[in-house]
Every structure is written in structure tokens, then in C-alpha cells.
Design a protein around this nucleic acid. Sequence first.
DNA 1: ATCCACATTTAGACTTAGTCTAACCACCCA
DNA 2: TGGGTGGTTAGACTAAGTCTAAATGTGGAT
Lengths: 135, 135
Amino acid sequence: MRDSVTILQEHGIQPSAQRVAVADYVLKTVEHPSADLVWTRVKARVPYISRATVYNTLNLFVEKGLLRALALAEDSVVFDPNVDRHHHLVDESGAIHDIPWDKVQVCNIETLKGFEIHDYQVVMRGVRKSARRKS
Amino acid sequence: MRDSVTILQEHGIQPSAQRVAVADYVLKTVEHPSADLVWTRVKARVPYISRATVYNTLNLFVEKGLLRALALAEDSVVFDPNVDRHHHLVDESGAIHDIPWDKVQVCNIETLKGFEIHDYQVVMRGVRKSARRKS
DNA sequence: ATCCACATTTAGACTTAGTCTAACCACCCA
DNA sequence: TGGGTGGTTAGACTAAGTCTAAATGTGGAT
Ligand SMILES: [Mn+2]
Ligand SMILES: [Mn+2]
Ligand SMILES: [Zn+2]
Ligand SMILES: [Zn+2]
């Protein structure tokens, strides 16, 4: 994994202590966390960080292309460090799983008359089958 | 269009004046309205209806299968009287358009290992091209 | 090393979507 | 006529997110 400081600098972001702490967590996670979950996670290592800074930082990262904000569930937006095209499966438990772009194909998108499609993804609802039986 | 009173009765819902007023709008609209937009629209005909009743009614309709609640954009859930499978295009303007189920195909969903998919749709972002040029 | 302009952070007020509560109303039937 | 039940209501409450204005930190010029 690349150094958070370097990544921020490459994107024209001053690597303050707070921003680096947020980046260390949110750019590597697979949790698709809400802003408040990011706050909780980051506070574990930087207890003095404020809620406003977490929101500021997440919005800045989205603006600079380091994160995507996703509206997949009611109640809160969720952040995704995977900015490449991919699909999502929203587990009944609330967890969100990435589905690689090439695992499913969407056909005839380009033939849709009357619309100019800038972006798309398949959003699935379901459950993750328990990986192999536990016993 | 079927009678709202009949539809409610068939779904085991007492057709009170307020519920019928909400149904008259929300079961026929193509706007994908938020709860507060429903309130605005219904108040035009039934000015004394309360916000709580609108929320209660929409949640009841969802529970009874008359409506779907969709989390497609940040800021609010929207309601959709089209409960058959279909896709959505979220216009940059904020408008949401239905895309018929058979206009695009999603392949290999059933071959996804480790997940049990209960439901899915394609969510597109883009713009509606001005229907023919205006002049 | 010091200074300063500017960027960053901060607490807490504010806004808005949505839920909850407890009183109130309307209808049905004894 | 008096409950009992349903439905409705205003307004309190919660929670996600933004905004403000003050405090603090920082890098570069001197
Ligand atoms: Mn909410
Ligand atoms: Mn909000
Ligand atoms: Zn993802
Ligand atoms: Zn729809």
C-alpha cells in the first residue's frame, strides 16, 4: 500500500495530521463506511479530531477524486476508496460488497435512445452465503 | 386508471380521505417524489393533511406493496408506484426516469459465487437529451 | 528565529429528513 | 348514548449533514 502522505500530495492536498489519519483508514478500507463510522474509526487513533474535520476531509477527498460517495441505502451516504468502475451488492445485514466490473455485463446501455449515459452500475440486494460451512 | 379506493381495499387498507388523496397522487405519478414533495402535491387538494399522515401513509403503502422506496440520491428517499422490475436513470437535474426492464440486459448475475441475489437493477447517471430540437 | 498571511481545525449552531408520542377525532356497534 | 377501535394530528425528538466564526497551525519571506 502506498503512503497516505504521498497520495495526498499527488492530489494537491496538504497532508495535515488529521487528513493523513482519515486517509490511512478510508483509502484502504473495504467497509464502505458512513461519515460517522469514519469518525469513530479515526478517533481510535486521533482522539481529538472533530466531526467537522472528518466531513470536510471526506468531501475534499471526493472532490479530488480519491473517494466516491455512494447513496446505496437510506439513512446515510457511504464512502468508497475504490474509484474504478464496479458494482455493489447491498447485503441484508447492511454490509456492502464490491462486485468486480467484469463479473456481470450490462448490454444495450449505449442503444438507449433519448439519454446520454455518463455512468452506471448494477446495484444488487441479497445476502452473502456463509463462506463454506463453519463446522 | 383504477379507482384508488378499490386499490386500497384490495390491499387491505382502510380508504380514509387522507389515504385516498395520497393514493390519487402517488400511485399515478411518474415524478419519483420525495415524501415532502408528496406532502406538497397532496396539500394542494387536501390542505389540512398533516406531514405525519403523509409519512405514515407512504410507509404503509410500501409495506403493503403498493409502492417502492428507492435510495437513489443523497438527501432523500423517493417513492415509486411502479413496483415491477425496472431500471433507473438519475438525471443530472435531479429528475429520475424509468428505464423498462427489457431495454438493457444484465448477464452473469446468477453465476455470482458466494452471494444470493434477491433483487437488482441498473442505476444510471446522465442527462435526457432534449427530445428533438425545440425550434 | 520571527513574523505573517493563509490554510486548517474546531465547537457548536443550524437545517432538514424522518420517526415517535400522546392527545384527539371519527366511525362502528352495544 | 357511551365505549372501543382506527386514523390523524401537532409538535417534540433524532440523526445526517452543513455552516459559521473563532482559534490554531504552517510554510515561506525576511
Ligand atoms: Mn434520517
Ligand atoms: Mn441531510
Ligand atoms: Zn465499492
Ligand atoms: Zn421507477
